[in-house]
Computed example of a mutant assay.
Amino acid sequence: MDGSRTPQPICAQEALDLLNCVTESPLDQEKCLRLLHSLHECVQSKKVKKFTLAEQNKERVDSMSKKDG
């Protein structure tokens, strides 16, 4: 097994598919709705409570370290 591979965040592919769907023009609402349901099923099965972006996590860690220092 290749140890250099970064694990993919939970439901990342489903979220990415939905985001890319809403950028399409014209908007295919039926396709996006199917992808929304797919994402919802994934987060329900994995018991996801909240998503954050990597940049948000970095800012939070940086602000916490400044308070401690």
Rank of each mutant, 00 (worst) to 15 (best):
17 D>G: 05
42 C>P: 01
27 L>H: 09
18 L>C: 04
44 Q>K: 15
20 N>I: 09
46 K>R: 13
14 E>T: 04
21 C>K: 00
44 Q>M: 14
14 E>S: 05
28 D>C: 01
35 L>E: 03
25 S>A: 08
40 H>R: 14
19 L>P: 05
32 C>A: 03
12 A>I: 05
28 D>L: 02
41 E>S: 15
39 L>F: 00
42 C>F: 00
42 C>I: 02
45 S>N: 12
45 S>K: 13
21 C>L: 00
26 P>W: 06
29 Q>F: 12
46 K>M: 14
12 A>S: 08
33 L>E: 11
43 V>E: 05
16 L>P: 07
31 K>Q: 10
23 T>Q: 14
41 E>V: 11
21 C>W: 02
38 S>Q: 11
21 C>G: 02
35 L>G: 00
45 S>P: 06
45 S>Y: 07
29 Q>A: 14
28 D>P: 04
34 R>P: 08
19 L>I: 07
29 Q>V: 12
45 S>Q: 09
43 V>I: 14
27 L>Q: 06
12 A>G: 07
31 K>L: 06
25 S>W: 07
12 A>E: 08
19 L>F: 08
24 E>L: 07
22 V>W: 12
32 C>L: 02
17 D>H: 04
38 S>L: 08
25 S>V: 10
16 L>S: 14
43 V>D: 04
40 H>P: 08
46 K>E: 13
17 D>M: 04
14 E>A: 09
13 Q>I: 08
34 R>G: 10
26 P>C: 04
22 V>H: 15
44 Q>P: 10
37 H>S: 10
35 L>H: 00
20 N>E: 04
27 L>M: 08
42 C>E: 00
20 N>T: 09
33 L>S: 14
20 N>V: 07
26 P>H: 05
33 L>N: 13
21 C>N: 02
38 S>F: 07
42 C>A: 03
34 R>V: 03
43 V>Y: 02
15 A>F: 06
32 C>G: 01
36 L>Q: 11
16 L>V: 14
45 S>C: 06
39 L>D: 01
24 E>C: 11
31 K>C: 03
19 L>H: 09
21 C>I: 01
